Simulated scan of single mutants.
Amino acid sequence: MADCSSLAVCICCGSFFLGVTVLMPVMLALYASPSSPSFSVNLFDNQAINITRNGDDHSPTNLTIHFHLKVKNENSAIGLHYPDPLKITFSYFPNVSMIVTLAEYTVDSFYQGNGKTKHVIDVVETNGAPTVLDGTDLVAFRVDVVGSFRYKKVGTKRHKVELGCIVGVNYTTSQKLLSGFTGMKKPGLDSQLKPPPNNDYYGAY
Rank of each mutant, 00 (worst) to 15 (best):
R158K: 15
S174Y: 13
L177D: 10
L133R: 06
V161I: 15
C13R: 08
A204Y: 12
N73Q: 09
G135H: 03
L189I: 15
V107P: 07
N199V: 08
C13Q: 06
K72W: 03
S179P: 08
L189H: 12
V146A: 07
Q175T: 09
G180C: 13
G164N: 12
N170V: 09
F141D: 01
F110P: 01
G147I: 04
N127Q: 09
L7G: 15
V145C: 06
N199I: 14
L30K: 03
T64D: 08
V100G: 01
E162K: 05
A77E: 14
Y92A: 07
N46I: 07
G113M: 06
V123E: 13
G180H: 11
F181T: 10
N198R: 08
N170E: 10
M184D: 06
A8L: 15
K186D: 13
H68W: 10
S174T: 14
L69R: 05
L30I: 03
V96N: 15
I11H: 04
A103C: 08
N73G: 07
L18R: 04
I121N: 11
Y171F: 15
D56Y: 11
M27K: 04
M24Q: 13
G180W: 12
I49V: 12
V161D: 12
N62I: 15
V124K: 08
G164E: 08
Y92Q: 06
V167M: 05
Y202H: 15
M184A: 09
T156K: 05
I49S: 02
T156Q: 07
E125C: 06
P25D: 07
M1E: 14
E74K: 09
A29F: 11
C12P: 00
I121V: 13
F16A: 13
Y111R: 04
A140Q: 04
K72Q: 12
T64G: 07
S6D: 11
Y92I: 03
D190C: 07
A32C: 10
M1C: 11
D108G: 00
K72V: 08
N50F: 00
A32H: 07
K153A: 15
L86A: 12
P197C: 05
D45Y: 02
K160Y: 05
T117V: 12
M24V: 14
K185S: 15
Q112T: 04
G55E: 03
T156G: 02
N73D: 11
L80H: 13
I166R: 11
Y92N: 05
C165Y: 01
I78D: 05
K116D: 15
G14A: 09
K185V: 11
G180Q: 08
G79P: 02
C12F: 14
N75K: 03
T117R: 01
N73W: 09
T172F: 10
G164F: 04
N127R: 10
Y202I: 13
D190A: 12
A103M: 01
A77C: 11
T117P: 03
I121G: 00
R158T: 10
F149L: 08
P130F: 03
P187K: 08
V145D: 03
M184S: 11
T172H: 10
Q47F: 02
L138P: 02
